[in-house]
Write a protein that binds this DNA or RNA. Structure first.
Length: 439
RNA sequence: GGCGGGUUGCCCGAGCGGCCAAUGGGAGCGGACUGUAAAUCCGCCGGCUACGCCUUCCAAGGUUCGAAUCCUUGACCCGCCA
């Protein structure tokens, strides 16, 4: 991984370019004194960002800040991704109006392994001058005794200040907070101190909801080491309609291909609302400013062509999955949503397109279940009642033809090449039925 | 530890013995329009072997012909006092 040509890597100008680019992309919410930060960033700087294992995979929301780490590395700095093996056991009160239910140690441990792997994909560990690192805060938290924790770390914290933190005070107003979650900010501060000591890490980045936790860490470093460090937060990404980003009907959009298929992932970005698409290109893509501005221009001229949407979907699918996955999935998308007849596709194209969809297998064409049963089996709807409702409402399709009648069953000639049928619910929810002959 | 308040469908939130599968809002889903977009309008939104049946209103018991609604016990949450 190298710096972009033509940009001064370091010095005042290099730091300036980096910060200006982040600002232009809308990635800078708050920071500690900007002059001091600029000054620090004019030399290779070690920075970190933490990811708590609260699920088996990261989702697209986590990607924002993860890619910021990568942006820093591309600019020559040394990123550390911290996986919260310890903090994940405790639970961050930030942004939650209710106490979290604790996950078991075994579960968290498994998630740590997976998230560590995911995070690593976006960083370069081989970079000669600025290799990335991944650390787990359990490594320094677990060996520490309670007494040590209270005396050496706890002594630096004022409960008055801890209570004043937004994440805590909000909970005091509302749902209450346990001592466990109350302590979270201390653990996160300890992480920053530890990384400061071990790796001279002087900058922490995170979502803007992490500001309180991050500045707690700055205070700790100042008290324990009489040194100052820096902080920067990234705005919480919202869609233009003010709703949470990264959720679909089926839940979160995950980075793990087993949890959100590359096809669904590609479709997710392709279906971005018009008014968000340019913003998302800035936030998620590594395309330079000029390219994004060109896309913006064409988007404004003719949004219906979805040129910017396609660029966004391609960039991200290539990045999170692979360019090969992207190509495959885009071809499938074209085949399935294109204007052409499904019957005109050749067998291989159709087969590979359908392999991207949720699939149901049939043993033979002798006894074909009803459309309703098939769509339920595919998992696209979760009950027969729901499936019947779709039929009644006129949103049920077989091979792009609307079907009527709740007890409609495909016939054997509905199977293209005698093997494939495509179920569709509404405009864009597809599933495949494939006949697998017993031999 | 004492006293008081609370726990309803994905979320918020009505209901306070029969008219309750449970008002309303949000989210979500389908249709029409368009562009696999938004906005708008219309419809839907527990399940099933479906004009009926089954399982729901924190849990377990009980009262009653009949309970989300009343009583008892328990769990969890909130507030005040110690």
């Amino acid at each position: 991984m190298v710096c972009r040509q033509g940009q001064p890597l370091f010095g005042h100008d290099g730091a300036m370019n980096l910060l200006e680019d982040l600002k232009w992309r809308g990635l800078l919410a708050q920071s500690t004194d900007e002059k001091a930060l600029l000054e620090a960033l004019s030399k290779p700087t070690t920075l970190y960002c933490g990811f708590d294992p609260t699920a088996p995979s990261l989702h697209v929301g986590n990607l924002v800040v993860l890619l910021v780490l990568r942006r820093f590395q591309l600019a020559g700095h040394l990123p550390i991704a911290l996986v919260g093996g310890a903090t994940g056991l405790v639970g961050d009160p930030s942004g939650k109006n209710e106490e979290r239910s604790l996950n078991s140690e075994e579960i968290v441990e498994q998630w740590v392994v997976r998230i560590r792997e995911q995070v690593s994909k976006y960083l370069d560990f081989e970079a000669p001058s600025n290799p990335a690192r991944v650390v787990n805060n359990l490594d320094w938290t677990a060996p520490m005794s309670a007494i040590e924790f209270l005396r050496d770390i706890g002594k630096h914290f004022s409960v008055n200040q801890m209570l004043a933190k937004e994440s805590v005070s909000a909970r005091l107003e509302g749902g209450g907070i346990s001592y466990t979650e109350f302590s979270y900010q201390v653990l996160q501060s300890l992480d920053f101190l530890e990384l400061f000591r071990r790796f001279d890490c002087t900058l922490q980045v995170g979502g803007s909801d992490q500001w309180g936790n991050i500045v707690a860490g700055l205070d700790l470093i100042r008290r324990a080491e009489s040194e100052s460090a820096h902080a920067m937060t990234v705005p919480l990404l919202m869609k233009s309609d003010g709703t949470k980003f990264g959720k679909t009907a089926g839940g979160s959009v995950w980075l793990d291909p087993a949890m959100t298929s590359p096809f669904a992932f590609f479709q997710y970005w392709l279906n971005t609302e018009d008014r968000d698409v340019i913003n998302f290109l800035k936030v998620f893509s590594f395309l330079p400013k000029a390219d994004i501005e060109a896309l913006e221009k064409s988007h404004l001229e003719n949004p219906g062509l979805r040129i910017a949407h396609r660029a966004l979907a391609r960039e991200l699918t290539s990045l999170v999955h692979s360019p090969q996955d992207c190509e495959r999935v885009e071809a499938a998308s074209r085949a399935l949503f294109g204007q052409g007849e499904l019957h005109d596709l050749d067998e291989a194209t159709l087969e590979s397109a359908l392999s991207e969809l949720p699939r149901t297998f049939l043993a033979s064409l002798n006894d074909i279940p009803s459309w309703v049963d098939l769509i339920v089996a595919s998992g696209v709807v979760d009950s027969k009642s729901a499936a019947r409702r779709i039929v009644k409402e006129g949103g049920a399709y077989l091979n792009n033809e609307k079907i009527a009648g709740e007890d409609f069953s495909p016939s054997s000639n509905d199977f293209i090449f005698g093997r494939f049928a495509i179920l569709r619910k509404g405009k864009r929810d597809l599933a495949a039925v494939e006949v697998v002959q017993k031999r």
